[in-house]
Amino acid sequence: MAGTAFTGLAIVCASAPAPAQNDRMTPIAVPVQSGAITLNTGALPGASVPESWHSQYGSVFARNVTVATLTPFLPDPAKASGAAVIVAPGGGFRTLSMENEGWDVAKALAARGIAAFVLKYRLNQTPADMPAFEESMRQMFAGPVRPPQADANGAFTGLAPQIADARAAFALTRARAMQWHIDTNRIGMVGFSAGAMLTLATELAGEDAKPAFIGIIYGPLGPVSVPADAPPVFVALAADDPLFGNGGYGLIDSWRAAKRPVEFHLYEQGGHGFGMYQKTTTSTGWFDAFARWLGMHGLLKPAG
Protein backbone atom coordinates (compact mmCIF):
# COMPACT_ATOMS: atom_id res chain seq x y z
CA MET A 1 0.00 0.00 0.00
CA ALA A 2 2.41 2.52 -1.14
CA GLY A 3 1.17 5.97 -1.97
CA THR A 4 -1.02 8.45 -0.18
CA ALA A 5 -4.52 7.06 -0.58
CA PHE A 6 -4.78 6.45 3.13
CA THR A 7 -2.94 9.47 4.47
CA GLY A 8 -5.80 10.64 6.63
CA LEU A 9 -6.26 7.18 8.16
CA ALA A 10 -2.75 6.58 9.40
CA ILE A 11 -3.54 6.60 13.09
CA VAL A 12 -2.61 4.33 15.92
CA CYS A 13 -5.99 4.73 17.57
CA ALA A 14 -8.28 7.55 16.53
CA SER A 15 -9.95 7.94 19.88
CA ALA A 16 -8.92 6.65 23.26
CA PRO A 17 -11.16 4.46 25.38
CA ALA A 18 -12.79 6.01 28.42
CA PRO A 19 -11.13 7.00 30.58
CA ALA A 20 -8.49 8.44 28.25
CA GLN A 21 -5.26 7.28 29.77
CA ASN A 22 -2.02 5.51 28.90
CA ASP A 23 -2.06 7.38 25.61
CA ARG A 24 1.70 7.52 25.31
CA MET A 25 3.22 5.10 22.82
CA THR A 26 5.73 3.03 24.80
CA PRO A 27 8.03 0.62 22.92
CA ILE A 28 7.81 -3.00 24.08
CA ALA A 29 9.58 -6.19 23.09
CA VAL A 30 7.98 -8.12 20.25
CA PRO A 31 5.69 -10.50 22.14
CA VAL A 32 5.63 -14.25 21.74
CA GLN A 33 2.83 -14.93 19.27
CA SER A 34 2.09 -18.52 20.11
CA GLY A 35 0.62 -20.45 17.23
CA ALA A 36 1.19 -17.73 14.62
CA ILE A 37 1.60 -19.22 11.14
CA THR A 38 3.64 -17.40 8.51
CA LEU A 39 1.66 -16.84 5.32
CA ASN A 40 3.21 -17.56 1.94
CA THR A 41 3.04 -13.99 0.59
CA GLY A 42 6.72 -13.27 1.30
CA ALA A 43 8.35 -10.15 2.67
CA LEU A 44 7.03 -6.67 1.90
CA PRO A 45 8.92 -5.47 -1.21
CA GLY A 46 11.50 -2.81 -0.45
CA ALA A 47 11.06 -3.02 3.33
CA SER A 48 14.10 -2.08 5.40
CA VAL A 49 12.65 -1.33 8.87
CA PRO A 50 12.04 -4.39 11.07
CA GLU A 51 8.79 -5.14 12.89
CA SER A 52 8.36 -3.43 16.26
CA TRP A 53 5.63 -3.18 18.90
CA HIS A 54 4.41 -0.62 21.40
CA SER A 55 1.75 -0.25 24.06
CA GLN A 56 -0.90 2.47 24.15
CA TYR A 57 -4.38 2.86 25.65
CA GLY A 58 -3.87 -0.31 27.69
CA SER A 59 -3.43 -2.34 24.50
CA VAL A 60 -0.58 -3.40 22.22
CA PHE A 61 0.16 -2.47 18.61
CA ALA A 62 2.46 -3.80 15.92
CA ARG A 63 4.06 -1.70 13.20
CA ASN A 64 6.46 -2.21 10.30
CA VAL A 65 5.03 -5.67 9.73
CA THR A 66 6.93 -7.03 6.76
CA VAL A 67 5.83 -10.69 6.87
CA ALA A 68 2.17 -11.63 7.30
CA THR A 69 0.99 -14.21 9.81
CA LEU A 70 -2.27 -15.85 10.82
CA THR A 71 -2.93 -16.84 14.45
CA PRO A 72 -5.71 -19.38 15.17
CA PHE A 73 -8.03 -19.11 18.16
CA LEU A 74 -10.03 -22.35 18.11
CA PRO A 75 -13.20 -22.98 20.12
CA ASP A 76 -13.84 -25.83 22.52
CA PRO A 77 -14.68 -28.77 20.21
CA ALA A 78 -17.82 -29.38 22.28
CA LYS A 79 -19.30 -26.04 21.19
CA ALA A 80 -17.62 -25.53 17.79
CA SER A 81 -20.08 -24.59 15.06
CA GLY A 82 -17.78 -25.20 12.12
CA ALA A 83 -17.92 -21.52 11.14
CA ALA A 84 -14.79 -19.37 11.07
CA VAL A 85 -13.81 -15.69 10.87
CA ILE A 86 -10.65 -14.00 9.61
CA VAL A 87 -10.10 -11.00 11.93
CA ALA A 88 -8.37 -7.93 10.43
CA PRO A 89 -7.28 -5.32 13.01
CA GLY A 90 -7.04 -1.65 12.07
CA GLY A 91 -4.43 1.04 12.51
CA GLY A 92 -4.33 3.11 9.33
CA PHE A 93 -2.08 0.62 7.51
CA ARG A 94 0.79 1.93 9.66
CA THR A 95 0.06 -0.03 12.81
CA LEU A 96 -2.15 -2.94 13.87
CA SER A 97 -4.29 -2.88 17.01
CA MET A 98 -3.40 -6.48 17.74
CA GLU A 99 -5.07 -6.78 21.14
CA ASN A 100 -8.20 -4.61 21.10
CA GLU A 101 -9.15 -5.38 17.49
CA GLY A 102 -7.42 -8.72 17.09
CA TRP A 103 -6.79 -11.17 19.89
CA ASP A 104 -9.64 -9.97 22.11
CA VAL A 105 -12.11 -10.23 19.23
CA ALA A 106 -10.84 -13.70 18.33
CA LYS A 107 -11.12 -14.93 21.91
CA ALA A 108 -14.69 -13.64 22.14
CA LEU A 109 -15.61 -15.40 18.88
CA ALA A 110 -14.01 -18.66 20.00
CA ALA A 111 -16.02 -18.48 23.23
CA ARG A 112 -19.16 -18.44 21.02
CA GLY A 113 -18.05 -21.52 19.11
CA ILE A 114 -16.58 -19.69 16.10
CA ALA A 115 -13.01 -20.48 15.00
CA ALA A 116 -11.18 -17.15 14.68
CA PHE A 117 -7.92 -16.29 12.94
CA VAL A 118 -6.13 -12.98 13.53
CA LEU A 119 -4.50 -11.67 10.38
CA LYS A 120 -1.32 -9.68 10.96
CA TYR A 121 -1.05 -8.20 7.48
CA ARG A 122 1.87 -6.29 6.00
CA LEU A 123 2.02 -2.54 6.65
CA ASN A 124 3.41 0.67 5.26
CA GLN A 125 6.90 1.33 6.59
CA THR A 126 7.35 3.92 9.34
CA PRO A 127 10.48 5.27 11.07
CA ALA A 128 12.08 2.71 13.37
CA ASP A 129 12.76 5.30 16.06
CA MET A 130 9.68 6.02 18.20
CA PRO A 131 10.22 9.83 18.44
CA ALA A 132 10.65 9.96 14.66
CA PHE A 133 7.50 7.89 14.21
CA GLU A 134 5.55 10.20 16.53
CA GLU A 135 6.83 13.23 14.62
CA SER A 136 5.81 11.66 11.31
CA MET A 137 2.31 11.18 12.69
CA ARG A 138 2.13 14.79 13.88
CA GLN A 139 3.17 16.02 10.44
CA MET A 140 0.64 13.77 8.77
CA PHE A 141 -2.19 15.23 10.80
CA ALA A 142 -1.05 18.81 10.42
CA GLY A 143 -3.39 19.14 7.44
CA PRO A 144 -7.00 18.12 6.87
CA VAL A 145 -8.01 14.47 7.10
CA ARG A 146 -8.52 13.07 3.62
CA PRO A 147 -10.97 10.26 2.97
CA PRO A 148 -9.73 7.00 1.44
CA GLN A 149 -9.69 6.83 -2.33
CA ALA A 150 -11.70 4.26 -4.29
CA ASP A 151 -11.76 3.23 -7.93
CA ALA A 152 -14.76 3.39 -10.25
CA ASN A 153 -16.24 0.25 -8.69
CA GLY A 154 -15.89 1.55 -5.16
CA ALA A 155 -12.94 -0.72 -4.32
CA PHE A 156 -10.04 0.82 -2.39
CA THR A 157 -6.85 1.22 -4.38
CA GLY A 158 -3.26 0.52 -3.37
CA LEU A 159 -3.98 -2.57 -1.27
CA ALA A 160 -2.30 -5.30 -3.32
CA PRO A 161 -0.03 -6.66 -0.54
CA GLN A 162 -2.83 -6.64 2.04
CA ILE A 163 -5.38 -8.27 -0.28
CA ALA A 164 -2.77 -10.92 -1.08
CA ASP A 165 -2.35 -11.53 2.66
CA ALA A 166 -6.12 -11.84 3.13
CA ARG A 167 -6.40 -14.26 0.21
CA ALA A 168 -3.56 -16.33 1.66
CA ALA A 169 -5.35 -16.38 5.02
CA PHE A 170 -8.50 -17.77 3.39
CA ALA A 171 -6.45 -20.31 1.40
CA LEU A 172 -4.65 -21.53 4.52
CA THR A 173 -7.85 -21.76 6.55
CA ARG A 174 -9.53 -23.80 3.84
CA ALA A 175 -6.46 -26.01 3.38
CA ARG A 176 -6.48 -26.88 7.09
CA ALA A 177 -10.24 -27.01 7.44
CA MET A 178 -10.31 -30.68 8.39
CA GLN A 179 -7.59 -30.20 11.03
CA TRP A 180 -9.39 -27.17 12.50
CA HIS A 181 -12.90 -28.64 12.08
CA ILE A 182 -14.05 -25.82 9.80
CA ASP A 183 -16.74 -25.82 7.14
CA THR A 184 -15.04 -24.29 4.08
CA ASN A 185 -18.34 -22.72 3.01
CA ARG A 186 -18.76 -20.85 6.31
CA ILE A 187 -15.60 -18.74 6.53
CA GLY A 188 -16.16 -14.99 6.86
CA MET A 189 -14.12 -11.90 7.66
CA VAL A 190 -14.47 -8.99 10.05
CA GLY A 191 -12.32 -5.87 10.01
CA PHE A 192 -11.87 -2.65 11.97
CA SER A 193 -11.16 0.74 10.37
CA ALA A 194 -8.31 0.00 7.93
CA GLY A 195 -9.07 -3.69 8.51
CA ALA A 196 -12.67 -2.95 7.50
CA MET A 197 -11.35 -1.45 4.27
CA LEU A 198 -9.29 -4.58 3.70
CA THR A 199 -12.32 -6.77 4.44
CA LEU A 200 -14.44 -4.91 1.90
CA ALA A 201 -11.62 -4.81 -0.66
CA THR A 202 -11.11 -8.56 -0.26
CA GLU A 203 -14.78 -9.15 -1.08
CA LEU A 204 -14.86 -6.68 -3.97
CA ALA A 205 -11.65 -8.06 -5.50
CA GLY A 206 -13.85 -10.94 -6.64
CA GLU A 207 -11.10 -13.53 -6.68
CA ASP A 208 -10.73 -16.71 -4.70
CA ALA A 209 -11.16 -15.48 -1.10
CA LYS A 210 -14.99 -15.29 -1.33
CA PRO A 211 -15.96 -14.57 2.31
CA ALA A 212 -19.24 -16.21 3.32
CA PHE A 213 -20.09 -13.11 5.37
CA ILE A 214 -18.32 -9.89 6.32
CA GLY A 215 -18.25 -7.43 9.21
CA ILE A 216 -17.39 -3.76 8.63
CA ILE A 217 -16.63 -2.13 12.00
CA TYR A 218 -16.09 1.65 11.86
CA GLY A 219 -14.86 1.62 8.28
CA PRO A 220 -15.76 4.09 5.50
CA LEU A 221 -19.26 3.59 4.13
CA GLY A 222 -19.07 5.10 0.67
CA PRO A 223 -21.13 3.57 -2.16
CA VAL A 224 -19.72 0.53 -3.93
CA SER A 225 -20.55 -1.70 -6.86
CA VAL A 226 -22.02 -4.78 -5.15
CA PRO A 227 -21.47 -8.21 -6.72
CA ALA A 228 -24.62 -10.18 -7.49
CA ASP A 229 -23.52 -12.87 -5.05
CA ALA A 230 -22.30 -10.48 -2.32
CA PRO A 231 -22.38 -12.04 1.16
CA PRO A 232 -24.40 -10.81 4.14
CA VAL A 233 -22.72 -7.78 5.75
CA PHE A 234 -22.83 -6.49 9.32
CA VAL A 235 -21.89 -2.83 9.82
CA ALA A 236 -21.25 -0.90 13.05
CA LEU A 237 -20.31 2.77 13.30
CA ALA A 238 -20.53 5.56 15.88
CA ALA A 239 -22.23 8.75 14.71
CA ASP A 240 -19.48 10.78 16.38
CA ASP A 241 -16.69 8.88 14.59
CA PRO A 242 -14.26 11.68 13.58
CA LEU A 243 -13.22 9.86 10.42
CA PHE A 244 -16.33 8.22 9.00
CA GLY A 245 -19.27 9.54 11.02
CA ASN A 246 -20.12 12.23 8.46
CA GLY A 247 -19.37 10.41 5.24
CA GLY A 248 -22.84 9.11 4.46
CA TYR A 249 -24.04 5.52 4.29
CA GLY A 250 -23.70 4.69 0.63
CA LEU A 251 -22.40 1.21 1.37
CA ILE A 252 -25.67 0.36 3.12
CA ASP A 253 -27.69 1.78 0.24
CA SER A 254 -25.57 -0.14 -2.28
CA TRP A 255 -26.10 -3.47 -0.50
CA ARG A 256 -29.84 -2.83 -0.19
CA ALA A 257 -30.17 -1.79 -3.83
CA ALA A 258 -28.47 -5.05 -4.80
CA LYS A 259 -31.01 -6.89 -2.61
CA ARG A 260 -28.25 -8.45 -0.56
CA PRO A 261 -28.52 -8.92 3.25
CA VAL A 262 -27.22 -6.02 5.36
CA GLU A 263 -27.50 -5.07 9.02
CA PHE A 264 -26.42 -1.59 10.16
CA HIS A 265 -25.88 -0.34 13.72
CA LEU A 266 -25.31 3.42 14.06
CA TYR A 267 -24.41 4.23 17.65
CA GLU A 268 -24.94 7.73 19.00
CA GLN A 269 -21.50 7.82 20.63
CA GLY A 270 -18.34 5.76 20.64
CA GLY A 271 -15.82 7.63 18.54
CA HIS A 272 -13.38 5.67 16.43
CA GLY A 273 -11.46 2.60 17.52
CA PHE A 274 -13.76 1.41 20.31
CA GLY A 275 -13.24 -2.26 19.43
CA MET A 276 -13.46 -4.45 22.52
CA TYR A 277 -12.81 -1.61 24.97
CA GLN A 278 -15.49 -1.47 27.65
CA LYS A 279 -16.74 2.11 27.29
CA THR A 280 -19.82 3.72 28.81
CA THR A 281 -21.35 4.19 25.34
CA THR A 282 -23.74 1.75 23.71
CA SER A 283 -21.10 1.09 21.04
CA THR A 284 -19.68 -1.42 23.51
CA GLY A 285 -22.64 -3.62 22.60
CA TRP A 286 -21.55 -4.07 18.99
CA PHE A 287 -20.00 -7.48 19.63
CA ASP A 288 -23.11 -8.95 21.24
CA ALA A 289 -25.13 -7.62 18.30
CA PHE A 290 -22.63 -9.16 15.88
CA ALA A 291 -22.86 -12.50 17.70
CA ARG A 292 -26.66 -12.41 17.54
CA TRP A 293 -26.43 -11.62 13.83
CA LEU A 294 -24.13 -14.62 13.34
CA GLY A 295 -26.67 -16.72 15.22
CA MET A 296 -29.51 -15.41 13.04
CA HIS A 297 -27.58 -16.69 10.04
CA GLY A 298 -27.14 -20.08 11.67
CA LEU A 299 -23.42 -19.71 12.28
CA LEU A 300 -23.37 -20.38 16.03
CA LYS A 301 -24.34 -24.01 15.61
CA PRO A 302 -23.22 -26.77 13.25
CA ALA A 303 -24.77 -26.69 9.79
CA GLY A 304 -27.88 -28.81 9.51
Rank of each mutant, 00 (worst) to 15 (best):
M1E: 12
T7V: 13
G8R: 06
A10W: 02
I11N: 02
A16G: 13
P17V: 04
A18N: 11
P19Y: 01
P19D: 07
N22K: 14
N22H: 12
R24I: 12
M25R: 07
P31V: 13
S34V: 11
G35N: 05
I37K: 08
L44Q: 13
P45S: 03
Q56H: 08
G58Q: 07
V60L: 11
V67E: 15
L74C: 11
L74R: 10
P75M: 05
S81G: 13
G82H: 04
P89M: 05
P89V: 03
G91W: 04
L96H: 02
L96V: 13
E99H: 08
E101S: 02
G102D: 14
W103E: 15
V105Y: 04
A106M: 07
K107I: 09
A110V: 08
A111D: 13
I114D: 06
I114N: 05
A115Q: 06
A116G: 13
K120W: 00
Y121P: 02
L123K: 00
N124C: 06
E134P: 01
E135V: 11
Q139M: 11
M140K: 12
A142G: 15
D151V: 04
D151Y: 01
N153Y: 06
F156Y: 15
T157E: 15
G158D: 13
L159G: 06
A160S: 14
A164R: 04
A164Y: 02
D165R: 02
A166Y: 00
A175N: 06
A175P: 08
A175Q: 13
A177D: 04
Q179N: 09
T184N: 03
T184L: 02
N185L: 11
R186M: 02
G188R: 09
G191D: 05
S193I: 10
T202R: 00
G206I: 09
P211N: 03
A212M: 03
F213D: 13
Y218F: 08
G219V: 11
A228H: 10
D229R: 01
P232I: 11
F234Y: 15
L237G: 07
A238V: 08
A239T: 14
G245F: 02
G250P: 10
L251C: 09
D253Q: 12
A257H: 10
A257Q: 15
R260W: 08
P261E: 10
V262N: 04
F264N: 08
Y267K: 02
G270T: 12
G271F: 04
F274P: 14
G275R: 09
M276T: 15
M276C: 11
M276W: 06
T282G: 03
T284A: 09
F287R: 06
F287D: 10
A291N: 08
R292C: 04
L294C: 05
H297E: 05
L299K: 07
L300A: 05
P302L: 09
G304D: 09
G304E: 14
